[in-house]
């Protein structure tokens, strides 16, 4: 395998190996919290932070952790950073914390983070792992921001809480889009669009 440049390491998570749309990881938070654009951005920021920090720490410890207990060790590192995010968000962004609810502590079991720890950070240098974490985090954020944007726009006629599609639309907005089925349907169509582009 040829060495990737720093830019490629950063960029692969955004498009070619996008964690949500291509690798289908981290589905639960992506579907649950994307009822609004703001929630998507908040969740994305939390994931970028946890993913980058845990990738760096795990990469630093990769020669110290015995491979038999590596998964529990990874989980403890990840859970520590998630607890930090949880407490900081509760203190400074209480509204966002309330609307993301149980899905902040559940970042611990977000498969993207454990998958990157196992597949990348435990085998690569600290610098590369940091880039990988940022890239994957940004890719995930972009995907859930698009998902949140579409759902908020169609389900409520707003973006970031500001009316976009006008009163007439808002009165008859497709409420189902911000209800659970809308999440499945939007993500399904988004993935179909990705596959159609690739197949060409």
């Amino acid at each position: 395998m040829s060495e990737r440049t720093a830019l490629q390491e950063l960029g692969k998570g955004v498009w070619a190996e996008n964690p949500l749309l291509v690798m289908v990881l981290g589905m639960c938070p992506s579907l649950a919290v994307t009822t609004t654009l703001a929630n998507g951005l908040g969740m994305g920021a939390a994931v970028i932070f946890v993913l980058t920090c845990s990738n760096v720490v795990i990469s630093m410890l990769r020669r110290v952790i015995p491979s038999a207990v590596r998964i529990p060790a990874f989980i403890v590192v990840i859970a520590s950073f998630v607890t930090m995010v949880d407490l900081v968000m509760e203190g400074f962004l209480p509204d966002l914390h309330r609307s993301l609810g149980v899905f902040i502590p559940l970042i611990v079991v977000n498969c993207i983070i454990l998958a990157r720890a196992e597949a990348f950070a435990s085998k690569n240098s600290v610098w590369k792992s940091a880039l990988d974490g940022i890239g994957m985090g940004v890719g995930f954020t972009l995907a859930i921001t698009v998902l949140g944007g579409i759902r908020e726009l169609l389900g409520n006629g707003t973006l970031l809480g500001m009316p976009v599609l006008g009163r007439g639309f808002q009165a008859h907005a497709a409420l189902v889009m911000i209800l659970p089925p809308g999440g499945f349907l939007t993500l399904g169509l988004l993935m179909a669009a990705m596959q159609a582009r690739k197949g060409r």
């Binding site: 089925p181 499945f184 993500l187 179909a192």
Partner: peptide, 18 residues
Amino acid sequence: RAFRGMPIALLTAGILSL
């Protein structure tokens, strides 16, 4: 073709959820 695999599964789940 574009819907094969995951997309069609997600749409099915959406209908089930509905």
